[in-house]
Design a protein around this nucleic acid. Structure first.
Lengths: 363, 363
DNA sequence: CTGTTAGCGCCTTCAC
DNA sequence: GTGAAGGCGCTAACAG
């Protein structure tokens, strides 16, 4: 059916040289080995005419490198968030001539093992293990086989794998500053978690813990006291609605820091039910920049999860990891003796999206 | 660093047989060639002990098959829709032991060519070319190299490639029937396209054309006249808002068929502005089942785009295509002489999600 | 029934 | 400067 692929041998034959010579020229090492201009031109010409493309499978077998990286996440479709992460990874990889294998574990450890195996069988050069929601994960043993990076996740046990995460603490600080900058100093309520440092939903949500730290830090330093906090068992609109309703029955908030946009959606609803206007009566700031944030009315000011950047960063870190192969660790600057390089954590900034839900505080 | 992978030769040596024999046993063809139980057991045992896994790259080089399929779409991250499509494809592929390469062209033909090349270089066994929004696409020449399927897209020129698409015409019929079943026969307005068969937004939107056909067909057959129709240049909330406002200034609709959920979001807003209640005053039915549909208040009744199923179906069709390799076309039933098998179109049903935005018509 | 030989396409010694 | 030989891991012919 389809004509046989053109091989290096074909090119060599047309150019009238040996496969070796052709290989040398095409891999760019012809110059340093001082292959004659004439030969070089002939090879290049033949390759162009035949539209020669190296067979990566063959190269893979020979060299062990497939210019491919595996991306395994627990869920890919749940939201556009994962899509953006993959998109970032995809583009960063493509820029270096790498392709991505995508796999989805659905939270099933056995499936995860299978997927990782399948990728390993295909000789991937590196692996990215991603979580949909920032959290700690158990790192499967198979991961040792190739350079790897944790994306949006922290290893549950000690692990030498680097990880890439959104900078949630700084995000918390930024959310708090948005309110402070608008002059709010009183009646600030937290919805989703807080007010105490331990008041977080069950499930080990990294986001809850860290956002709370940032918020409390900035507010605390400004001498502002949090007026109230309400843990939501699940960060869904209905929980935000219920929590905000409960809050409104006993207090008159001037500003809300919602722990994510879905909670904020519920909060808007509760505020509306009580005849309160956003941002006139109550300012609202939130986290995630879920697509819905820009559709809400008024549009929600929120600190965005940088999914695209997370994906890119994971690939960058992975390449650094792959390049580290034979490198001398001493290169890395002041590495003290006996110090084990392990589990560097890379934080990606979360940008504030200033929209319409925060107004200046009226004294 | 990492211990060398265990190879077939290792297994053979431990089992005390030749690599060929080991290969035969492990590929399951030992039985038919009547290899002794003893040898079979020894090989199996050795393989298990060593945790042998065949190197797919090597198999790929030898047999030309890599158990890998390429999935190229114009956008992956724009919405969760694409994510679901990929998820469906991923799962269907995994069930058959295949992995997916993902690529994204961003609508750039050159990039598309590069991506397809890169996949071809990696010897993919098949290709899925997907579009984010249903539309006609130019099929790149490179596609001839491997079995391929068009997903959510129709070829612009004649092409032998099969395609998989949502059944938009039937979706249109279903939307219309939802209204009819609720007793609506008057004051039905279309928002996004219509009322005439040619009243569609520019850009060759397949969805607009086909949904309109289905709607007109069912309404027509029931003897119901469309009260009005409003083309929206872009199917975004603000356009739905504007169109519905314009409509409300001159008419008093009883039901709206919005051409997608984002338009419906705008329509809700306009209705609210005019003090009209959904569904008490006006029923609304829509298309897509965008995540926002379930969040709107009242929850939107809509005909869902079956992204997950589309992805699965594409893989199914692709496998059929790959299996067709040496098959005699005559197998395919009544294929008439001289008839060229080309471009079969597979339609995937769009299910109605009955929610809260449609009420019985009050006479 | 099992082993030997060969080769998929490429790259990497090593000779010339 | 260039070519010949070998091997990555596996399987398809062919021997025995």
């Amino acid at each position: 059916m389809s004509p046989r692929r053109v091989t290096l041998a074909d090119v060599a034959k047309i150019a009238g040289v040996s496969p070796t010579t052709a290989s040398l020229v095409l891999s760019g090492r012809g110059r340093e080995l001082r292959i004659s201009q004439d030969v070089e031109q002939r090879v290049l010409k033949a390759a162009a005419e035949l539209q020669y493309r190296p067979n990566i499978v063959s190269v893979g077998l020979r060299t062990g490198t497939t210019r491919t990286i595996g991306f395994v996440s627990d869920t890919i479709a749940t939201s556009r968030l994962a899509g953006d992460m993959i998109k970032g990874a995809l583009e960063a990889a493509r820029e270096r001539g790498f392709m991505l294998f995508i796999g989805e574990t659905e939270g099933d450890p056995e499936l995860e093992r299978l997927l990782l195996q399948a990728m390993h069988d295909r000789q991937v050069d590196g692996l990215i293990l991603a979580a949909m929601y920032t959290r700690t994960i158990r790192v499967p043993k198979v991961m040792g086989a190739a350079p790897a990076v944790l994306l949006n996740a922290l290893p549950k046990q000690r692990s030498p794998l680097p990880s890439v995460l959104p900078d949630e603490v700084e995000a918390g600080r930024r959310a708090a500053r948005v309110l402070l900058d608008a002059g709010h100093r009183e009646g600030i309520h937290l919805v989703g978690a807080g007010p105490g440092r331990r008041d977080v939903p069950p499930g080990g949500s990294v986001a809850a813990v860290e956002r709370l730290i940032g918020i409390r830090e900035v507010l605390g330093e400004a001498g502002v006291k949090v007026a109230g906090g309400h843990v939501c068992a699940d960060w869904q609109p209905e929980y935000g609605l219920a929590a905000t309703r409960a809050l409104l029955e006993g207090a008159r908030p001037r500003a809300l820091i919602c722990f994510n946009d879905r909670i904020a959606l519920g909060a808007y609803q509760a505020l509306d039910d009580f005849g309160l206007k956003v941002p006139g009566d109550v300012s609202v700031v939130s986290f995630d920049d879920h697509p819905i944030a820009a559709w809400m009315r008024p549009k929600l000011t929120t600190v965005a999860l940088p999914h695209y950047e997370l994906g890119r960063k994971a690939v960058d870190v992975l390449f650094a990891e792959m390049g580290r192969d034979g490198d001398d660790a001493v290169q890395e600057g002041a590495v003290r003796e006996g110090e084990v390089r392990e589990g560097e954590v890379h934080r990606v900034p979360m940008p504030v999206r200033l929209r319409e839900s925060v107004a200046a505080a009226t004294p």
